[in-house]
Design a protein around this nucleic acid. Sequence first.
DNA 1: CGCCGAATTGAAGAGATTCAAACTCAGTGG
DNA 2: CCACTGAGTTTGAATCTCTTCAATTCGGCG
Lengths: 237, 237
Amino acid sequence: MIRTISPNRASFGRCSACTVRSFSICGALDQSDLVEFERIARHVHLAPNEALFTAGQLAQSVHNVAAGVARLYKLLPDGRRQVVGFALPGDFLGMAPSDRYSFSADAVDSVTLCRFSREAFTHFIAQRPHFLIRINEFAARELMLAQEQMLLLGRRTAEEKVASFLVGWRKRLAHIGDERQTIALPMSRQDIADYLGLTIETVSRTLTRFEREKMLIIVAGGVRLLDPGRAAAMAAA
Amino acid sequence: MIRTISPNRASFGRCSACTVRSFSICGALDQSDLVEFERIARHVHLAPNEALFTAGQLAQSVHNVAAGVARLYKLLPDGRRQVVGFALPGDFLGMAPSDRYSFSADAVDSVTLCRFSREAFTHFIAQRPHFLIRINEFAARELMLAQEQMLLLGRRTAEEKVASFLVGWRKRLAHIGDERQTIALPMSRQDIADYLGLTIETVSRTLTRFEREKMLIIVAGGVRLLDPGRAAAMAAA
DNA sequence: CGCCGAATTGAAGAGATTCAAACTCAGTGG
DNA sequence: CCACTGAGTTTGAATCTCTTCAATTCGGCG
């Protein structure tokens, strides 16, 4: 079984010692900003599958993931689900174009986050252009990922989708310092299927085939990539 | 044939008289800001199918669409294309998480835009928090649209995709003041197909069926929605 | 009028889904 | 200690939606 995804001991209550700060929006805050920022932050722990917020709810808070993985998704009335993203430590969940959440979010595994009242957060950023710029950069990155996901959903085959997912997920894990040989997959097959616009059976079959073809080994809680080059090639750019 | 999409006579050279300002990022600028903003703007006209920029190029400019429709897309090495969005008057094309464009954009019909050097633009916004906040709001809306598109691409049927597209496109046209009975579709069937993750044949067949079922009438350059309620219901929320 | 790209229509085929069943494995309790 | 349980996953077979390939029609324009 693979360890949970979290930078070794993210410290809370003390932003200045927070291990995810450098790759979160807070990285743009200096020491004095941090002190004030900490005053409006509330640290929250969530058990697996607990909800951060639900689509349609009044968007009273913004969040910063400190540890664990969150699943962001939208539902159709008949229950079909599309996972629009997985949030990792350092990711910011805040942008809302209206006063209500446009998607739902809940914890995949154990999640820790910094929660801010939208009001206090809005007030805080309004006087800090450098912080606004940082948030903008994060939004831009988010948007780019969304566009890549559109390309995946609209134009890639099942095989390419699964390969792309593994490659992209590995890259994101590496970005937050998780460089283990085995790629941790804390989310369920159903989560992956709903992220890739496939069924759980297709995801399972595809992974099994990859294993038969010696591209990877399926282990509890993740996969071990034996042939990253082949996976990358299969992802089709 | 349907008229091109552009708020009646968008004026250029004079931001203060620009008809799309209220629903563009510039809406956050006051009279004095506008004067300086205008100084760094260059007005550009593009003929149908001319490129605004191409994925991979150095991102030296940011753009604001003033008139016409632009198509934003990504390509796979083998030529498969995913249209990630259509930009309408008032839309801002600027967010780039790196120094290179992550997608391509070109004119669907005749397009007019305000072009800014990234450098000058970055300098301009850095000292105007209210403007940054406005850009943030636009980014948030963009991201929300992207997430809805992911839901469409991953979980909707062909029929639902086409219906959703028509309903959503009509709503966007209404938002910029185009409330004609007939929905203008300046883009080709191929563009629509690449936007919805379908083939051109499926789009054509679906529209034809909608027409047979008296939901709409196909006209040159667009469709006339006879039964918006049914279209909305078919879009499945 | 006749050309040419775009769009439509038809028939056959493929990839992914659906439905169904078997398997795995961690947790539970006899 | 090990059988029992149940959720999650894997595997199999049949089906279906959408695609592919091919041909025809439409519509603007010289």
